[in-house]
Amino acid sequence: MLQGLKWIGVILDKLIETIDLSYSYRSGEGEAVRALSRVNMAVYRGEILAITGRNGSGKSTLARHFNALLTPKEGRVLVDGLSTADKANTALIRRKVGMVFQNPDNQLVSSVVEEDVAFGPENLGLPREEIINRVDEALNTMKLETVRHENPHHLSSGQRQQIAIAGVLAMKPECIVLDEPTAHLDPRGRREVLQSALKLNREEGITVVLLTHFMNEVIYCDRMIVMDRGEVRAAGAPQEVFMQEELIREMGLDFPVATRIASALRSRGYPLPPSIMQAEELIEGICRLK
């Protein structure tokens, strides 16, 4: 939702900020493993941010700091100005930042769809009518009304992931963090979840953080962050990041398909802009060559 000038307008409004955040844990053999080292980054209000990097690069550990599932021992994490290190803030922070995990099977609590969506609002201690309204609204947004009385266990994994998103949506967070929500889905389910994430951002105005390995998801985001060995190695608009060819290769990432085709055509003398990422942009560029 942030393009050009509008982006500059909100640039200072940081919803989540990490300052010199470091995190270590003990491995099975008892040695300390540094999962994050001096991470300085921010999530801006209203944006959709992709965080990418190979498995074990620290993406997930970073994301778990955003809603105080992990709290910093070194450095600080501020959510809407509140420090996550202060236990008194935890409840409020978790209201502001919701989280959806990789495997839908391990995050659904109930055996009925609508009851699962109600779980979060119930934890917030909301009055009954408000819970019902929110559940209806969330089911409606995620197009799940028809299965509201079903057992999630008998639905597809794509639908189960949509239920998990609805469950977070019903808590009306300002930001939703999606931790590789599409890793266990087939390509169709993956596209549907991506579309939901984009819809939440563009239509509901929710800030979205999407952790992903798929470049065809990254290209629809406003900004991207590349993590490697616990450090932020690049940050910026995807167009800019993908232009750093050396870095992308070193990080073990892919280039978007359209970018690869465009660069091959460019090397054959066709003047296509280097910012091409989406298929539509490439087609437009090719049509303009005439």
Binding site: R188, R190, V257, A258, I261, A279, I283, I286
Partner: peptide, 29 residues
């Protein structure tokens, strides 16, 4: 039937429909 084609195939199909002379069923980048 709910299968997503490879991105390359989708892109080439779109260009083909715009009148570019491309063979059908391309999937290799």
């Amino acid at each position: 039937i709910g299968l997503e084609l490879p991105e390359v195939t989708v892109l080439v199909e779109k260009l083909r429909k715009l009148g570019y002379k491309l063979p059908p069923g391309l999937f290799n980048i």
